[in-house]
Nucleic acid binder design. Structure first.
Length: 565
RNA sequence: GCGGGCGUAGCUCAGUGGUAGAGCAUCACGUUGCCAACGUGAGGGUCGAGGGUUCAAGUCCCUUCGCCCGCUCCA
């Protein structure tokens, strides 16, 4: 994930405070803190009734538009119908999967922490970081005398180092041993330089001396690139959740909760090809929970340790892969727009060349300007051209051939058929975060209109809204509830599988409208004294507050049209 | 992980070491009937948790958990 400043500064959306959005989410049952009654648990959130349905609607929209009727029936770059099939793969897979995918290697990099300032640095990159980004380090080496030609040994002058320690050093590297107790530190260095004149110290050894206060007790220390403090011992950062498959908890049984759903697709690529008559180009979709031990879970549900992804791996011939990459990138942007993220808060950002993985020729992010990232953006979905990296990795590690024999390619045979071509398919991966999507939809829909008696409105797209319609008898008597019950039944029968149909006869009509505004219900239908006479009701629009009289038997058709069903 | 802020009713928040509060919301009854209407009531709290000081702690001290912000990290 990444956040970036927009190219042109845009003011943060006024009136949208994350505190107010979070309060509404709890008040109306969208999002609760996980384990709330025990004080919560860092990085985990639950969905309440409306949130669960909202997220289900989002997942369902993805499933419909990506798997069942991909891209709304639109044709792909080659003029063919886009074809996709689903799989549902396990959260726990063979541990070697994560070795092959590179996720395990990513963790193997031990990190070192500075107890002074809390800075983390990757152990194997410490000296690179010092040279390239550490302010104090680059200031300090200015004080060294250039190393004579052909040697690695710069000269050091105690007087100038002492001056640096009492001047610039105090500001740049307050925790560096040289700054904290210059005389002691310099005497150790002098002992070393004079003690072994035949093997003079290089820059690294000099700096390690300058970072060490009690040489005989601790040995040489490594300094923190930010404050100069003594770095702790390298420790493995485990960003994957570990557990054990089997009742004996030994390393032999250690398994991981997946950090992404995509790998499950690559693992079953061969089975899908062999069992379902799919032909390249085609996609395999997979939705489900993933887990990452985020170092700093933050910003409400945006960075959670347990989250849900909706990922498509689309396989195609290498020669067509770039066209497909552009196709999916553009469609995914359009899709998010179609469910309500239509404004300037949504951008498609193409990664710069230096951001790309070595195997990728293109990656784009669909990014949303959340209230907490504004004026920057936060990632909703990444569309990556992954080349044949994953299939190749799994082929290498599993020793199972994962290439594809394409009978539509190759030279034409005398009988008119094709000779065929064997190749490793390339893969385009649109990978969306459903929790981030749900959060973006809530943030985008959240609107404060002080001119209305109920200022807080959640303008959710009807397709996504958890409550599809509400029916209110204006009075709880005179036969009105009976008419309302009938209409409620009709709406339930038609739309009950898509979302909630609310019915409420209590309290003033204004309060009932206001409640539905906050819950994001797009349309309310009110039965009044005239309804029995002329068979009409009032349809009240959430976003405008406007009312429209319509015949009762038109209501179901009206709602269906708005829901796009 | 560091620094700052916060944590009291479903929500927003008052609360000076001395009886646990307000507004809104929820529910009931009555009145009303198209935009959080009015009246009368009701329910709802281990004051985030655990220790300590004190005759007495929501309030002071220590520890801890969670949320927000800024760093840091984000394979």
């Amino acid at each position: 994930m990444s956040t970036h400043a927009p190219t042109t500064p845009t003011p943060a959306t006024p009136g949208k405070s994350m505190d107010a959005i979070m309060a509404l989410c709890k008040r109306r049952g969208f999002v609760y803190q996980a384990s709330d009654i025990y004080g919560g648990i860092n990085g985990f959130w639950d969905y309440g009734p409306l949130g669960a349905q909202l997220k289900k609607n989002l997942r369902e929209a993805w499933w419909q538009d990506m798997i069942m009727n991909p891209c709304w029936g639109r044709k792909g770059p080659g003029g063919e119908r886009v074809r996709c099939v689903p799989v549902e793969t396990c959260i726990i897979q063979h541990p070697k999967v994560w070795e092959a995918s590179g996720h395990l290697a990513g963790f193997a990099d031990p990190m070192r922490k500075c107890p002074g300032c809390g800075h983390f640095v990757r152990a194997d990159q410490l000296w690179d970081v010092l040279v390239s980004t550490s302010e104090w380090f680059n200031s300090l080496i200015q004080e060294f005398e250039p190393a004579p030609a052909g040697t690695q040994t710069p000269g050091v002058n105690s007087v100038s180092l002492l001056k640096w320690a009492r001047g610039k050093g105090k500001r740049l590297a307050p925790n560096l041993a040289l700054v904290r107790s210059p005389e002691v530190t310099l005497s150790w260095l002098a002992t070393r330089v004079n003690g072994q004149p035949s093997t003079p110290p290089d820059v690294i050894e000099i700096v390690r001396h300058l970072a060490t206060e009690q040489l005989d007790a601790t040995g040489l220390q490594d300094p923190c690139p930010r404050c100069g403090g003594v770095l702790g011992a390298p420790a493995a950062f485990k960003l994957m959740f570990e557990t054990y498959a089997g009742i004996i908890q030994t390393d032999d049984n250690k398994v991981y909760l997946r950090p992404e759903t995509a790998q499950g697709v690559f693992l079953q690529f061969k089975n899908v090809v062999d069992s379902t008559r799919v032909k390249i180009p085609f996609g395999i979709g997979n939705t489900g929970r993933s887990f990452r031990n985020e170092i700093t879970p933050r910003n409400f549900t945006f960075r959670s340790r347990e989250f849900e992804q909706a990922e498509l791996e689309f396989f195609c011939h290498p020669d067509e892969s770039f066209e497909w990459y552009k196709f999916w990138r553009d469609f995914r942007m359009e899709w998010w727009q179609s469910i309500g993220l239509a404004g300037e808060n949504l951008i498609l950002r193409e990664h710069a060349k230096d951001e790309l993985s070595h195997y990728s020729v293109g990656t784009s992010d669909v990014e949303y300007r959340f209230p907490f990232t504004a004026p920057g953006f936060g990632e909703l979905e990444g569309i990556a051209h992954r080349g044949n990296y994953d299939l190749t990795q799994h082929q290498t590690h599993s020793k199972v051939k994962l290439d594809y024999f394409d009978t539509t390619r190759g030279e034409t045979l005398p009988n008119g058929g094709k000779k065929g071509e064997r190749y490793m398919p390339h893969c385009i991966e649109p990978a969306a975060g459903l929790d981030r999507g749900a959060l973006a939809l809530i943030c985008e829909g959240y609107t404060v209109d002080p001119s209305r008696p109920s200022p807080e409105i959640l303008k959710l797209h009807p397709r996504i809204a958890p409550i599809k319609a509400a029916v209110f008898p204006l009075m709880d008597k005179d036969g009105l509830p009976e008419i309302a019950d009938k209409l409620t039944d009709d709406l339930f029968a038609k739309f009950g599988r898509l979302g909630f149909i609310e019915s409420d006869a209590k309290q003033s009509i204004g309060k009932r409208y206001a409640r539905m505004d906050e819950a994001g219900c797009p349309y309310c239908f009110t039965i009044d004294g005239d309804s029995a006479k002329d068979q009409t009701v009032t349809c009240r629009d959430r976003d405008t507050g406007q009312q429209m009289r319509m015949s009762i038997d038109k209501v179901v058709g009206f709602v269906g049209e708005k829901l796009g069903v």
